[in-house]
């Protein structure tokens, strides 16, 4: 079943305008509930009220205020907020291209697949060029009245635009040098590397699933049929000892597992 595009835009690159359609790359699988009144199972209504009096406030009397100090805020009138809305545009401005490693994972917010809108050739040619250059593009655009920043990359020939967090949000480090006392010994490093190698694997996301979601859905289905289900609890373990001993013991355990 083909998904619906949420937005259409044009990548602006030199003399080229590449038309693209945005599709969410994320499937929302969260289970949504309605809030009900326990007594009569009637749905709840949300009221916006004055905190001091508890009186309902009609929508046209609601305003937004921006706090500027402990006891000071500035009310922004609807028409002022309207003026802050960026002008609509189909343009996706490409600011620069950087090596993929220049963007840490902490910048990434939400991914969208881009599909071709019109010139399919241009779309795939741009993708091939981007993948050949091993680069990602930093982009800026306005979508549905909001400003976005994004990183455009290629996976299997398809373009992906991942929205980026703002610079003010990202905390990062440029360097940390541990003290001598915290610096691991050569033998510890060697053991740790062996341990890493012993449980080395390829990234295989299919093997993990949100078990809570599965159990919750089962429970809902069972209840819908009027049944009850029993949960299966999970066990855990813990070990103590010196770092080198623990590494050795873990290594031995990992080896056993491999042989078995």
């Amino acid at each position: 079943m083909a998904a619906r595009a949420i937005w259409k835009g044009e990548l602006q690159l030199g003399k080229h305008n590449v038309g693209v359609k945005f599709y969410s790359a994320i499937e929302d699988r969260s289970i949504r509930f309605h809030l009900l009144h326990e007594k009569d199972k009637a749905p709840v209504e949300q009221h916006i009220v004055r905190k001091d009096t508890g009186k309902d406030v009609p929508k046209e009397e609601m305003r937004k205020a921006f706090a500027v100090g402990p006891n000071t805020a500035v009310i922004l009138q609807p028409e002022e907020l309207e003026e802050l809305v960026p002008p609509e545009s189909r343009e996706i401005e490409l600011l620069r291209f950087v090596p993929a490693s220049a963007v840490g994972d902490q910048w990434y917010e939400r991914p969208y697949y881009l599909g071709p809108d019109g010139h399919t050739d241009d779309y795939f040619a741009f993708g091939e060029a981007l993948s050949r250059k091993e680069a990602i593009g930093i982009a800026r655009w306005v979508m549905r009245k909001k400003r976005y920043l994004g990183a455009i990359s290629v996976v299997d020939g398809y373009l992906i635009m991942t929205t980026l967090r703002r610079a003010e949000q990202v905390v990062s480090f440029s360097g940390i040098e541990p003290a001598k006392s915290a610096t691991p010994q050569a033998n510890e490093l060697k053991l740790a590397e062996q341990l890493v190698k012993s449980i080395e694997a390829d990234f295989d996301p299919e093997q993990w699933q949100n078990e809570y979601r599965v159990r919750l859905l089962k429970l809902i289905e069972a209840k819908a049929r009027g049944e009850k289900i029993k949960p299966a609890p999970v066990k855990k373990k813990r070990a103590e000892g010196s770092l080198a001993d623990s590494l050795k013991a873990s290594l031995a355990a990992a080896k056993e597992k491999k042989v078995a």
Partner: peptide
């Protein structure tokens, strides 16, 4: 400038 908040009400009662 009075602070507003959210309240839940029963849709039946």
């Amino acid at each position: 400038g009075h602070a507003l908040g959210r309240q839940y009400h029963c849709s039946k009662e």
